[in-house]
């Protein structure tokens, strides 16, 4: 018990001394010798080793033109949809990229619930075509000493924008007792804005040919949809009824070398 008190008092005394040293100027002269001692101690002891900070290396710079190859998989996974996306990227300042994409997506499916016998599927016919664009920047956090390593680990933001024309030719609402009722929603346009948090890996496959993998977390900002129907897919965003959407891109791009310093300088 006594020991406990003793240690505590010692501890309080010690912290008080630290505070005094930090904040009181008047007593400084009195404590000069003490300060001197401490300085000596610091020099003698093992100083905190500063982590050697590597400078950002000279990676190849240029203008990249790419295609999102994952969009070609969309019709394979869902044969109601067709999508395409082109990408452009260029270096900005030392370790940033300015990035932009332009894409297209269309959806079309038929209502087969009124067929005899009825087929399983979506109980409405739907058609949508739209384009989208996104612009933003990436920041490269990948610092490596290895010579000629042009890979990047990227974090960034995008602002996305899509406009589409969509409509439902036939909407079937069925009821076990009353049978089915059909109605329709004529084609109209919807504009959507969203924000993306992106994280990407970029690796050089061959000279100047890069592969990008992006994961995108998207948040819908605004939509001018005036009717009850939500877009089946918002081009570039995802399901129309979602406010948050996760997406990914797999971009193969060619970098046209541009603005490089000569190596070895």
């Amino acid at each position: 018990m006594l020991r406990f008190f003793f240690i505590n008092i010692l501890f309080i005394g010690f912290t008080a001394a630290l505070c005094a040293q930090n904040y009181t100027n008047q007593t400084r002269s009195n404590q000069q010798s003490y300060g001197q001692n401490q300085q000596d101690n610091q020099q003698e002891g093992t100083p905190k080793k500063k982590k050697k900070k590597l400078p950002y290396p000279d990676k190849e710079r240029g203008l990249s033109i790419g295609v999102d190859v994952s969009r070609f998989l969309v019709p394979v996974l869902d044969n109601d949809r067709i999508a395409f996306e082109a990408n452009l990227k260029t270096n900005y300042k030392k370790r940033m990229f300015l990035a932009g994409s332009l894409g297209f997506e269309s959806v079309s499916f038929e209502d087969e619930s009124t067929n005899t016998p009825p087929k399983d599927g979506k109980p409405y016919s739907y058609e949508s075509t739209g384009i989208y664009g996104r612009v933003g920047f990436d920041y490269d956090i990948f610092v490596v000493e290895e010579e000629n390593n042009n890979d990047n680990i990227l974090f960034g933001f995008r602002y996305g924008f899509a406009t589409q024309e969509h409509g439902a030719d036939q909407i079937t609402i069925s009821d076990d007792h009353w049978g089915y009722y059909t109605t329709s929603i004529s084609t109209y346009s919807v504009t959507t804005h969203w924000l993306e948090l992106v994280s990407g890996l970029r690796t050089e496959l061959f000279n100047n040919l890069y592969l990008n993998l992006y994961v995108r977390l998207k948040t819908k900002l605004a939509s001018n949809n005036s009717k009850v129907m939500e877009p089946y897919r918002i081009p570039g965003f995802g399901r129309g009824s979602n406010n948050i959407s996760l997406g990914f891109s797999y971009v193969v791009e060619y970098q046209i070398p541009w603005g490089n310093k000569k190596r070895g300088q």
Partner: peptide, 13 residues
Amino acid sequence: ELSFVSEECGFVF
């Protein structure tokens, strides 16, 4: 009133 359920389920009243 027409009401949207979801992309997959379609509509109800």
